[in-house]
Amino acid sequence: MTAKGGHAAVPPGFVLARELMDGQRLARTLSRMAHEIVKHDPEVARLVLVGVRTRGVPMARRLARLIKAAGGAEPPVGALDITLYRDDLTTVAGQPVIQGTDVPCSIDNRRVVLVDDVLFTGRTVRAALDELVDFGRAARIELAVLVDRGHRELPIRADYVGQEVSTSRAQIVQVQLTEDDGRDCVLLLDREKPMAAALKAAPRAAGKKKAARR
């Protein structure tokens, strides 16, 4: 699907509820988060950013550049693939694709900021924490997320939050970043109702209009 007329690409099977952030707002939000990270502990020489694949990695790279702009050295950026630590491997169908983990330096006695795009159940963060612990004993681990959408299933909270959004469980928060998706935005999506999907399949134009109004 292609983005058309400046509107974000909505994946098939979903309809747009609303746009949570556009490109400008996303840039401002990341910049604020970078400042908060520096403000919390100005000694950034011992800082490491670790992004959770997939969107957490480009987000961590951007934060690293913004931290440099906000005062000091650009922290190293790592990437975590939490697949090997998932708690649902025995129940998901097929095998999740392994994308690989890359932690570029020792995290012993360093301040680690874990970066992910969306905080939801907290299970991804749990897996990421378990994986990080296997790489060494960090002085402190903090969590930065672009969107906190609630519905936690574990006692986990973020230290730096771009935006809090109340959502229903069935909704999807989709972060799109230029590096992976060709544009910057955050979308709140509804699952397409079977009825709407049928309408969309028959007279295409009518279905689309209906979806846009919701």
Partner: peptide, 17 residues
């Protein structure tokens, strides 16, 4: 295999998979 090889270079060479 290419992506799993990295686990062998970790300080703790074990994952709970």
């Amino acid at each position: 295999a290419e992506r799993l090889r990295e686990v062998l270079d970790r300080p703790i060479k074990k994952v709970p998979t």
